[in-house]
Design a protein around this nucleic acid. Structure first.
Lengths: 341, 341
DNA sequence: TGCAAGATTCAAAGCGCTTTGACAAATTCA
DNA sequence: TGAATTTGTCAAAGCGCTTTGAATCTTGCA
């Protein structure tokens, strides 16, 4: 059943039916009701492609699997995407997921030139990210999940990674910790850079030595969490507390602590960033994990809204949000054990 | 730059340019080369919507976040989707991700009637899954990731869950284990049902009592793995080995074993199903985990191919695959400790 | 009652592409 | 050399929708 048939059936013009369906004001109330009823009855749905062609808008937003993480996939992406998809569904927008084969820039160019999407979501930005200016040149609106250095006005939503890790570090310092290790994501990415900065600043503010060797960055997997934690804890003067950039890394760090015959909390405190994944809940671990928490799913949902606004022509310069991050205090953080130092 | 402009520039008709670009045979070789060169030069890309409208095919496949797991998201979905997206990119097909708000059936109806996609991928099917017949009625080709009871011909790709868990159970039995627990996914889903069946059959084949209480099913999270393992291990006659349906559940089970002061492997053996996630690698754990392994990413890639074939009109009845599952023997499985029993 | 203003409705022109059926040019064959 | 093919190209007709600009029908008011 298409518009023509529906119009024919109703004895109306396609124009009127289209307008009635799309809520234009110049349609009589009686007529509108008739149209709506018939559309309902025949399960009429405008053909997506035809509508796109006529309006020029794709009615879709794009998400590109960045090649950076193409091999090493981040499980939190599911939650993020679920947030995006859920909110997009509400505004009847499609979500197009593309994988960048080879050059990621090509993928964006393809999306732009084929007019497949009205806006794209850019994940895991780097401090200097050429993608933002590329998209600007392509005139493809973008909302960045995170932040990047750019003079160009670009919409973004980020969480306060710096503040979160600063406060977490301060909290550990308040408990008496002097040597606080950081197990971070790859600092090529802005979020990791910000976290490192927060940690570094808090240490500096207290006058603690900021030794680079206490800050490690890499993949946020269980295994690398384990490896880094072991490395740090086997130092002459090991840290008495560890900050982990992901729950998976924290799992690895906890394993390392145990493997070394130490107790989590009592011997080595742990704070982890929690994105709110259902698969591993920090509050159910033993001991329950102190976390910096921010729901990545909620971020996805909000980003979908921003993308929709952008697609509708909103000014990117006005679409900036930085969400505060909660610290949830639990059993994995205790004062450091008594020591000579 | 659109087709018209390109044709104008070349002094050719739109027809010829279109045909040249799409590789039709009736275009002169010289002409074709000219057209291709110009298209390259001007970065011409056909407008996706226009092409869809003209051809009637959406050039996209759909993936629906099932409401079943909408709240409790599965991190392995990222890997699956990455596989789908990567392969789809090769065949220039879009991947549309939709979230089912409310009734999932509505989402499929919407996709079908708006002709947004040429085929859909159905994940986590149940034994009796109304979605398959719904999609059949909607004439929307479907490829099921897993299997379901249905008389209708439907394409699917599944892994041999039953065989995997049967062999894993047999392997444990061969090591001398008599009481083997199962920590499974929700048996409302076929994959979990099959795994349970494999476990059950192996036990029965050896003449071991198949006590229902040794088989537990629920979410595949760390927490529920912990809970179930604890429950089982606190029995009067606890299992000496545990089969876990996911690496996350295995992580929880390992924690439970340790919390009870037991040793993984020596006191309680563990086998887990490994989907190949990078975030948690069974071979790097202590002890390294014995697993049934099948890359969910590879499955996603192959499913994208099947979906493309379906979209191109292939007969679903001919598109069935069941992949064998490898068992990878590692340190977490040892003979059971000597006991009175 | 007559007419301007407002409320509805419509026919037709795109949107940018593919594809059909016709036509011209080049080639082959008798 | 002329007819019969084959090859290469084109104009035009859609695909199903939105939207413009004009036409028609109601009202309200003088």
């Amino acid at each position: 059943m298409n518009l023509k048939q529906l119009a024919l059936h109703l004895g109306l013009s396609q124009t009127t039916v289209s307008r009635a369906l799309n809520g234009f004001p110049e349609v009589g109330e009686r007529t509108r009701r008739r149209v709506l009823a018939a559309a309902e009855q025949f399960h009429y749905r405008p053909n997506a492609s035809a509508r796109k062609l006529a309006t020029g808008r794709a009615g879709a937003i794009g998400v590109v699997f960045s090649s950076d993480r193409n091999l090493l996939l981040d499980p939190i992406f599911t939650d993020f995407l679920a947030g995006v998809a859920a909110r997009s569904a509400e505004s009847d927008t499609d979500v197009l997921v593309s994988s960048a084969l080879g050059d990621e820039a090509d993928t964006y160019r393809r999306l732009a030139r084929a007019h497949s999407v009205d806006a794209v979501i850019l994940s895991m930005p780097r401090e200097e990210d050429p993608r933002v200016s590329l998209l600007h040149r392509l005139a493809l609106p973008v909302v960045v999940h995170g932040r990047t250095e750019s003079k160009l006005p670009y919409a973004h939503l980020d969480i306060d990674n710096e503040g979160a890790f600063r406060r977490a570090t301060e909290m550990l310092a308040d408990l008496g910790h002097r040597r606080i290790g950081l197990i971070n994501g790859d600092t090529a990415f802005t979020f990791a850079l910000h976290r490192e900065r927060g940690w570094r600043e808090a240490l500096a503010a207290r006058g603690f030595a900021v030794s680079a060797e206490l800050g490690r960055a890499g993949q946020m997997t269980e295994e690398s969490g384990y490896r880094f934690a072991r490395l740090l804890l086997e130092f002459e003067a090991p840290p008495s507390a560890l900050l982990c950039s992901s729950i998976f890394a924290a799992l690895g760090a906890m394993r390392a602590i145990r493997d070394l015959g130490l107790a989590i909390g009592r011997d080595v405190s742990i704070v982890a960033h929690d994105d709110g994944l259902a698969a591993v809940r920090p509050e159910t671990l033993t001991p329950a994990l102190t976390t910096t928490f921010s729901s990545i799913r909620a971020a996805g949902a909000r980003i979908a809204e921003i993308a929709a606004a952008l697609a509708a022509g909103a000014d990117p310069a006005s679409l900036h949000e930085v969400w505060p991050v909660d610290i949830v205090f639990r059993g994995s953080t205790l004062p450091p054990p008594e020591r000579a130092s």
